[in-house]
């Protein structure tokens, strides 16, 4: 075999010449290709454009209230239409408390259900169980609200709340959460109904995250003499922990914005912040739903829109954080997170 120098490659031999040349030139004018391209560009950008427009509109309408009260709009507890004073702290408090309560209840239950589905359920049970749980997500909010109003609230008032008062009430610190009369329609019931509503989110995302844990992780721990539960506790859950946290935060995001069902069970009356959960309250969303029809003067209306703008910002931040965490686990997860 002979070797050749690079120079030999420059000119093809004359015997290779062919007649005519291929038509490589770009066709002129606008083709269907370009039309389609611009069409999909437009549809893709329309969605974020709506979001931006929405936010801009909210800020414009909320501006009179925001400008007048400044930081006091979020730090003041005084919401008084007659005196034209609008401080949203009780609403923010109600949203935070009910959402965190929902998260506290729904995360262990949801992660437990996801572990059952991925690790323990016999194959024929897997799909029906997860399907049923996810069906919860398809139930319209108003139906949860009606059920909460007619079924959950009386039970909370007659049974659950007295029970919590007698068992948890005497304890130091957390006992303070369960003081006062059992009213049924209060922050506690609001948190409970929210926990049911965010359960499907937590279950389905946790399940995806747990399924993404490599079998090798599980087997590696089993091969060291771990029981099934030890392998889940020591290998599977630590590997998936970032994604599970993401699932919980996505649930939190849903709880923050949930309106109808909460409005029907939370009481909608107290405007004072007290330590106990057994008091009627407002969330930001329920305050908007309850009061926007009553907003009979410009400043009142502006304050209501201000609450909406605030809610939008908080939800956006929580959603972005959750997506980032889930995204991290689904692209190699814990390994990427711990490297370096």
């Amino acid at each position: 075999m002979t070797t050749r120098n690079a120079e030999d490659e420059i000119a093809p031999p004359a015997s290779w010449d062919v007649q005519g040349s291929p038509k490589f030139a770009r066709s002129s004018g606008v083709g269907a290709d370009d039309v389609f391209k611009w069409l999909v560009y437009t549809t893709a950008f329309a969605v974020p454009a709506v979001l931006v427009a929405l936010f801009v509109l909210l800020v414009i309408d909320a501006w009179p209230a925001l400008a007048r009260f400044g930081l006091g709009f979020v730090t003041s507890s005084n919401w008084d239409n007659v005196k034209q004073q609008f401080g949203t702290l009780p609403y923010i408090y109600g949203t935070v408390v009910t959402s965190l309560l929902a998260l506290l209840i729904a995360t262990p239950v949801g992660v437990g259900a996801a572990i059952f589905v991925t690790e323990y359920a016999p194959r024929p049970l897997r799909v029906p169980v997860s399907f049923t749980i996810e069906l919860l997500a398809a139930i319209p909010s108003i139906i949860f609200g009606l059920w909460g109003f007619f079924a959950l609230t009386p039970i909370m008032r007659s049974t659950v709340e007295p029970f919590m008062k007698s068992v948890v009430g005497p304890l130091p610190v957390i006992g303070g959460l369960f003081q006062g009369p059992s009213v049924g329609k209060d922050l506690f019931t609001g948190g409970v109904i929210l926990s049911i509503m965010i359960l499907p989110t937590i279950v389905s995302i946790s399940r995806e995250v747990l399924l993404a844990v490599p079998t090798m992780q599980r087997e590696g721990m089993l091969a060291l003499g771990a029981t099934r539960w030890e392998a889940i506790r020591e290998a599977v859950i630590p590997y998936a922990r970032v994604g599970i946290a993401g699932a919980a935060i996505l649930g939190l995001a849903r709880a923050l914005g949930e309106t109808m069902a909460v409005t029907m069970v939370i009481g909608n009356s107290s405007r004072k912040i007290t330590g106990t959960l057994l008091t009627p309250g407002y969330t930001m969303a329920s305050a908007i739903a309850n009061q926007f029809t009553e907003a009979d003067n410009p400043l009142y209306f502006s304050a209501i829109v201000g609450v909406a703008a605030l809610l939008l910002v908080v939800s956006a931040i929580v959603n972005i954080a959750a997506r980032l965490m889930i995204w991290q686990i689904s692209r190699g997860g814990a390994e990427g997170g711990n490297r370096g």
């Binding site: 089993l222 029981t227 814990a334």
Partner: peptide, 28 residues
Amino acid sequence: VQVRRYIGMVFQRPNPFPSMSIYDNVVA
């Protein structure tokens, strides 16, 4: 479970536990 404590296994692909340190991997 007891059997696997007497008969160890190394797998096709290295599978250290990524959430644990090197030290904790050894004593897991």
